[in-house]
Amino acid sequence: MFDGLLDGYTRSILIFAGINVVAAYSFYVPFKTGQVSLGQAGFMAVGAYTAAIMTQKFGLPFWAGFLVGGFIAGIVGVVVGFPALRIKGIYLLLLTLGFSEIVQVIALSWDYVGGAQGFRQIAFNRYTLDYLVVLIPLLIWFFARLERSSLGRAMDSIHQDETAAEVMGIDVVRTKLFAFGLGAMIAGFAGALYAHHATFMDSSTFNIMMGVEILMFVVVGGGSTYWGPLLGALFLTLLPEFLRTLREWLELVPVSWMNFFPANRVYDFLHEFLDFENAKRLIVYGIILIVMMILRPDGMLTRDQLRRFSLPRLGRRHG
């Protein structure tokens, strides 16, 4: 799809943005029940390695690897979700962080998947963008439905007060496990897509910082509405690209226009500032994160805001 429309660079940017959106949704599901996971990168790794084993070692087509990867990640999610039931807050953060590290150690020491050399020559999937174009609207549709379903409301109420939710007759254990497993499955899909687009991965690909970045997408975008993860992931992934484009435009300005004192300094400064290699990009991320937490601790989009601006839905008005 879009073969003629997009050049390779834009295509690759869009693919990584899309994978980040999927990863952000994987964090959003357990977060909806109040579970904060730093381990989503670990589930991505499970999905990525499983899918790559399926396509490379068993010769299955990508779609099969993709489904198996997501499924296995989901099962691992439920398994990790069990101990996660008993603990919350800082303990859950530490548990998911520990899980993510364990996955890394296993990937590093398991020679079947390349060990320290990394998993090489994974079959390239040229339809990654098409998968994303289908998967992301599907996720948004699903979360829109979830928001208005009894299950979604149960998840919200667990987020707000677990004991109260339990007293109301909500099956807290099942709902939380479901949320954790579903989140892990979505992360597995993201991982499978990543592996077959990058065609190489090693144990450090899905590291703790990746888990932190995924958390960041949702927190910056806004965790109280299902549009937040989309917005946050797109914003943070595309921001450096946008600035890079600005720089290219800046370079189009003829040098003769800029060849006198104040303008040339301004030009040099902007030129330097808009050059976004990785370290600088991450520094800007960090600053955004702190400023966000000071000014808008609930993220860019909140549910109340959406409610205020949304049109009344057919047949029923908002209270």
Binding site: M209, V219, A279, I283, I294
Partner: peptide, 28 residues
């Protein structure tokens, strides 16, 4: 100090931001 006290996640995330800044400043 400037971060909202009533949200338990907020100071955690702002210090994660600080982590990212410090690490990448060092790389830079």
């Amino acid at each position: 100090r400037p971060v909202a006290k009533d949200r338990p996640l907020a100071p955690l995330i702002s210090t994660i931001g600080l982590t990212i800044i410090l690490q990448n400043l060092a790389v830079y």
